[in-house]
Design a protein around this nucleic acid. Structure first.
Lengths: 122, 122
DNA sequence: GAAGAGATGAGAATTCATTATCATTATAGG
DNA sequence: CCTATAATGATAATGAATTCTCATCTCTTC
């Protein structure tokens, strides 16, 4: 059976509060403000479990590992700050995007990433 | 000084022939058809040198390492096949894309990736 | 509030891409 | 053709992200 631990609650809370894709080490950092003893292995275990449960989904952006965000959110894309390397959500999306593929290709999804400097870093 | 070796010529030819982004191991595989003794270290060295020269540019797509493509090509995007994991070029691009960022963010580039199955894999 | 079993935390182990090492080979220039 | 030296290739080393191990802890249930 699956237990409702302090650590897992903290990790869920982090994602609900932050509202942008997080890398495991970011989850650790934010999570330790709630449960200071939180360890990195626990973050990996729970992030994986929550992803398997469908509560989180994986986001792959340039610049290293996989990040995670709340699943079942409205369609959106991402902005990646070249300065602080944080990822932010972009809630608008051009709609004819999937028409752009070459002839004969079957498109089932797309990802759009904007690069630049976030409001904070400017 | 920089020498014009068989290996480097082979690697350049691979990129010119294939016309899509290649990961180092793909470069190795194609290059060995021209110079069978070609080694992986040489691929990494030359790909890096050609990138420093501005002849290649880096492409970061989901699913692992960096791929490379000919630099100085017209603006384009990529299609990533979920089945064979090859990357293809997409030559069309919606033009109002960079207007989508949140208020206060400064956009200096974008990447658009389509996912699906390529003509070959269907 | 005891006991059983899942979860945790710290660090070791693993994986995989990339880089460094170094003896050998091949190129450019004379 | 010769020489100096850049480049190569095989393999070891590195680095970073992720997973594993295991003793300990803490939920859950009775």
């Amino acid at each position: 059976m699956q237990r409702d631990t302090r650590q897992r609650r903290a990790i869920r809370r982090v994602f609900m509060n932050v509202g942008r894709p997080l890398a495991p080490d970011e989850v650790l950092e934010h999570g330790q403000r709630i449960v200071p003893s939180l360890g990195l292995a626990t973050v990996y275990r729970n992030v994986k479990a929550l992803t398997d449960d469908g509560w989180l989904s994986e986001v792959e952006l340039p610049g290293g590992g996989i990040r995670y965000e709340l699943a079942e959110r409205p369609h959106h894309h991402h902005f990646l700050c070249r300065s602080c390397d944080l990822a932010f959500d972009v809630h608008r999306c051009p709609d004819e995007i999937e028409e752009l593929a070459p002839e004969g290709f079957e498109v089932d999804g797309h990802e759009l990433i904007l690069f630049g400097r976030c409001a904070e870093c400017r």
